[in-house]
Structure formats: structure tokens, C-alpha cells
């Protein structure tokens, strides 16, 4: 399984998640980033179960609307949920409250279970909305959107560099791994593996430091003076306005449900 993981994740070079084109793609990148961030803020700070459930169902609606590959999306989310499963098993026993059942003298509480479920639902809702609104654009569009949203430009440049060179460095890594495999290297739980991987990582660092020097040289040669041009014009269209209005109404509804819950 670890082999499969390694392969699928190192081949990402900043492209959007695979999906068919939908009306979500027509939306302005800034609107999508801001909406997703606000959604995360509201859902994570929710205290009401109803609000979080509503948020989650809205997240499913957005996933459907963005025409993401449902199977792949769920697989990503399930990876996280397996991790959450431990939380669901532990929290009922560590939270004081009304006893649900007793196991080896430890009592599991309803409050603990609700808490664990609430966390799981929140985490899922936020991820699904992020996937469908933000991950459906390419990573460089995301960087440009951040730049238009007045994120410090050094940070944006760093992001764009990371996106650009991720693929290059991962090619480098794969090349060296293949060379090791050609020499019959198989990973195991032993000192030899750790030493070899250490050498691999050290070599990766050296090669990337040298590559960085070459990149800087090439940039200097073209007169780089600390500024990149954002060559895409982002325009707010009527569709963006309608979507933002709808989205903010929904968020206000969620906030309202929470306030109502708190007042009771």
C-alpha cells in the first residue's frame, strides 16, 4: 500500500483535480478562495449539530456541482476518516458525561461520541468544499488568486516556485529511486535502508541546491528584479455576484442556527 501511495502522490505537478468542466470553473478564482475560507471558518466554529450537518450536505452539493470524480474524492476523504476513526474510539471514554456503555470498567459517554462525530463532520465538510471550489483550479491559478487577494508577494512567488519545481524534483527523486531499484535495492526495516535513503535525500538536497543556483542564474540573465507579472486578468462577472450572494446567505443561515442554539 505504501508503494501505491508513493507513486500516486509524487506525480502531482500542480494541476487541478480531475473533473469535467462545470459552472464552478466559470467562477472567479478569488471568489472561490474567499468563499471556501469563510465556509471553513463558519463550519469549524459551529457548535450546533444541525448547522454542521447542513454544512456537510451543502459540501456534497458543491462536490456534485463541480463534477469532481466522486470516487477519487471520496477516496481522499476516507483516508482522513480512517484517521478520525481512532478519535471516535477514544473520545467517548475520555469525555465525562452520561454513560452510553461500559467496557472493562471504563464508561463511554454520549457527549464524547457527539464531540467526535462533530469533529469528523466538520473536517469532512471543509475538505469537500476545498476540493470542489479550490482544488478544481490549477495550483498556479490559486497562487495568482492569492496575489490578487493581497497576500505578500514573496509568499505567492514561493508558492509558484514550489508548484513549478515540485515536478522537477520529484522526477529527480524518481530517477535516483529507479537507479537504486536497478541495483536491486528493496526497502526494509534495517540500517542499510535508512542509510541508503539518507544518502538519497542528501543527494536530492545537493542537486536541488545546485539547480536553484542555475535557476537564479537564468533569472538574472533575463533581468529578474524581484517582480513577477500576473498575466491573468480576473474579473467579477454577474455569475460571481449571484454565487457570492447565495453563498453568504447560506453562511448567515448557518450562523443564525448556531446563535439560536447558543441562546437556548
Amino acid at each position: 500500500m505504501s508503494q501505491g501511495l508513493e507513486h500516486s502522490l509524487t506525480s502531482w505537478s500542480g494541476q487541478a483535480l480531475k473533473h469535467q468542466s462545470s459552472w464552478i470553473d466559470e467562477l472567479d478564482a478569488r471568489v472561490r478562495v474567499v468563499c471556501a475560507a469563510l465556509f471553513a471558518l463558519v463550519v469549524v466554529s459551529s457548535v450546533s449539530f444541525v448547522a454542521v450537518l447542513l454544512g456537510l450536505s451543502f459540501a456534497f452539493f458543491v462536490v456534485k456541482a463541480s463534477k469532481l470524480n466522486i470516487k477519487r474524492t471520496l477516496r481522499r476523504v476516507v483516508a482522513m476518516d480512517l484517521f478520525m476513526l481512532t478519535l471516535i474510539c477514544v473520545l467517548p471514554f475520555t469525555t465525562p458525561g452520561d454513560t452510553m456503555f461500559t467496557l472493562f470498567g471504563l464508561s463511554a459517554s454520549w457527549q464524547g461520541l457527539t464531540h467526535a462525530l462533530l469533529i469528523t463532520l466538520k473536517a469532512n465538510a471543509v475538505l469537500l468544499v476545498l476540493f470542489s471550489l479550490v482544488a478544481t483550479m490549477s495550483a498556479s491559478t490559486f497562487g495568482h488568486a492569492l496575489a490578487h487577494l493581497k497576500v505578500p508577494d514573496k509568499l505567492v512567488h514561493l508558492l509558484l516556485f514550489l508548484v513549478r519545481y515540485l515536478d522537477v524534483i520529484s522526477q529527480e527523486y524518481k530517477k535516483m529511486r529507479r537507479a537504486m531499484q536497478a541495483r536491486a535495492f528493496v526497502m526494509g526495516t534495517n540500517f542499510h535502508t535508512w542509510k541508503s535513503i539518507g544518502y538519497l535525500f542528501g543527494m536530492l538536497l545537493i542537486r536541488s541546491i545546485e539547480r536553484a543556483e542555475r535557476i537564479l542564474g537564468a533569472m538574472k540573465c533575463r533581468g529578474f528584479c524581484g517582480r513577477f507579472y500576473l498575466n491573468d486578468e480576473m474579473k467579477i462577472t454577474p455569475l460571481d455576484r449571484r454565487f457570492s450572494a447565495f453563498f453568504s446567505c447560506f453562511l448567515i443561515l448557518l450562523i443564525g442556527i448556531n446563535v439560536d442554539d447558543l441562546l437556548q
Partner: peptide, 13 residues
């Protein structure tokens, strides 16, 4: 920038 960007991708990998 290039150095930090490249090293960040090494961390990512």
C-alpha cells in the same frame, strides 16, 4: 526565492 522554493519542494517530496 528559487533556493527556498526548490527546498520546499524537497520537503514536500
Amino acid at each position: 526565492l528559487p533556493l527556498v522554493g526548490v527546498l520546499a519542494s524537497v520537503f514536500f517530496i
